[in-house]
């Protein structure tokens, strides 16, 4: 088995462009073509903007998730974490409004709080995993439940809403933009480009891949394994906070159902993009393609009638599996 697969890998590296690399892109292009064929509004400015902007939250989180998974970890708590951070941010901003009025400082403080809260939440996950030594799956399953309960408790089971005037002031952060490109899209692009550079061209990215590939080799190569792993969770937490900064101005509210299943969508996007679930290899641009694929499927199903809405989940599931199978075929001929 080991022999057979390693030998086949030789062929892969010589092939240059092959399915493993272009698989996700082919899937994305196919979806765009289907969209164009089905609905003339598909390529309209408004629809493209909608799809890209709504991808931004999960996209920003998935970029962070790429690092965690590449380093051999996993984080199931990001959806709940996003809901909790959003709730906290709204509560504090509402409080601040009473003392500072409806003003820019309130927004800036709210943003700072979201980033710090995300960072601390990531730090807690990371410390429990790397210092206390509990499995990432268990730790983040636990914190997932904790944050979900906390937001329900904060909101008294209902919905936390930003004060109306505050919402109007903060609104442009989601709906506004420059040169016709909305802020969430700009933020997503910046995070994705930085993520790709960090993954591919810095020691941190290389260390993540080394740890995910073989933690023992990394340790023997004098890489600070625990610190790098901790950093991946902190980075992810920070990006969750950043995603929340973009999310809150959209509807100005958070509830117990905010961010539901975001963790699974983020993980699915990462895997569709060609990052190995067991770690050792990650690519951020692939993750971006994965996020777009997932968003486009939802968009296409909403724009057309030919599939019963009951089957939306089945279509998404099938595309996820297909995307991964395509990559396998390209990688190793079994």
């Amino acid at each position: 088995m080991t022999m057979a697969t390693t030998q086949n890998n030789t062929g892969r590296t010589r092939g240059g462009l092959n399915l493993q690399v272009i698989g996700p892109i082919v899937a994305l292009i196919a979806l765009v073509l289907i969209g164009m064929a089905l609905n003339s509004n598909f390529l309209s400015y408004a629809n493209i903007t909608n799809v890209l902007a709504r991808s931004a939250f999960i996209g920003i989180i998935a970029v962070g998730m790429t690092f965690v998974i590449t380093a051999g970890g996993l984080d199931l708590s990001v959806g709940s974490m996003a809901a909790f951070v959003a709730g906290l941010m709204i509560l504090v901003m509402n409080q601040l409004t009473t003392s500072l009025g409806v003003s820019l400082p309130v927004i800036l403080l709210g943003i700072a709080l979201a980033l710090v809260a995300g960072l601390v939440a990531g730090l807690i996950n990371g410390i429990l995993i790397t210092r206390v030594g509990i499995e990432a799956f268990i730790v983040t399953l636990g914190t997932m439940g904790i944050y979900r309960s906390l937001i329900t408790w904060l909101a008294d089971g209902g919905t936390l809403s930003l004060g109306f005037e505050m919402r109007e002031l903060y609104r442009p952060v989601y709906y506004g933009g420059i040169a016709g490109i909305s802020w969430p899209i700009i933020a997503f692009v910046v995070v994705a480009v930085l993520g790709e550079v960090v993954m591919r061209h810095t020691a941190f990215g290389r260390h993540c891949a080394a740890i995910g590939s073989n933690e023992k080799v990394a340790r023997y190569s004098s890489i600070p394994v625990a610190r790098v792993k901790l950093a991946t969770y902190v980075l992810l937490g920070l990006l969750v906070g950043f995603a929340v900064v973009m999310y809150v101005p959209r509807l100005g509210s958070a509830s117990a159902s905010t961010g539901l299943l975001w963790e699974l969508e983020a993980i699915a996007a990462v895997i569709i993009g060609g990052t190995l679930l067991k770690g050792g290899f990650g690519r951020v641009w692939g993750t971006v393609v994965g996020v777009l694929i997932l968003s486009l499927i939802g968009n296409l199903l909403n724009l057309t009638d030919f599939v019963s809405p009951y089957l939306n989940g089945a279509i998404q599931g099938a595309v996820i599996i297909l995307a991964v199978v395509l990559q396998r075929k390209g990688g190793t001929e079994r």
């Binding site: 061209h201 290389r206 260390h207 073989n214 080799v217 340790r219 190569s221 890489i223 050792g280």
Partner: peptide, 30 residues
């Protein structure tokens, strides 16, 4: 333990060679 602790078998020669000393290959970007 060459395979278990010495080399990343799924990585290229270059990535293995410089792994312990990446900080000497460029300040921020490698």
């Amino acid at each position: 333990d060459r395979k278990g602790a010495g080399l990343l078998l799924d990585k290229s020669l270059r990535e293995n060679l410089t792994l312990p000393l990446l900080h000497r290959f460029g300040r921020v970007l490698i």
